[in-house]
Amino acid sequence: MMEAALGVAIVPSLAASMLSDTLTLVPLRPRLERRLVLTGPTTRPWHPNVTAIRDLCEQHGALTPAG
């Protein structure tokens, strides 16, 4: 619908790679941020997907240890 110039849509920036070259993302203000809380069992390993998200957060300095 957006390519047909029938309106606007609010989409996350993660969708940018899926947009055609005829569409443009315009950031909204104010910018919203979310807090992601990762938790898992203490008696067995976490699910590999949770571990991967945790590792990405650590690499980008976005992880704050619980305290």
Rank of each mutant, 00 (worst) to 15 (best):
M2N: 03
E58T: 09
T22C: 02
E58F: 11
G67F: 14
L38K: 09
A5S: 11
G7D: 10
R34S: 14
H60K: 12
R29I: 13
L25F: 08
A52M: 03
V26A: 15
G40Y: 00
T42S: 13
S20Y: 11
L36N: 12
L38Y: 04
N49G: 08
E33Y: 11
L23C: 15
H47E: 14
E33F: 05
A66I: 07
L25C: 04
T22W: 09
P41M: 00
A15L: 07
M2Y: 09
T39A: 15
L63P: 00
L63V: 12
T24Y: 03
L23E: 11
T51P: 11
G61C: 04
I10M: 13
P12S: 05
W46S: 00
T64I: 13
P41W: 01
V26F: 12
V8W: 07
T64D: 10
I53K: 02
R31E: 10
P65T: 08
R44E: 03
L28N: 00
V11H: 05
P30K: 12
V26H: 12
L56Q: 08
A9L: 11
A16G: 06
N49S: 08
A9I: 05
L32T: 11
P65F: 06
P27T: 05
D21C: 06
P12I: 03
P12N: 05
M2T: 04
R35D: 07
R54G: 08
T24P: 05
D55P: 00
G61Q: 01
T51I: 05
H47G: 04
P65G: 11
R35Y: 06
L28G: 00
R31Y: 04
G7V: 07
A66N: 11
A5P: 08
L14A: 10
T64F: 06
P27A: 01
M18A: 15
L23V: 12
V37N: 13
E3S: 13
L14F: 10
P27R: 01
E3M: 06
E58I: 04
L56H: 03
R35E: 13
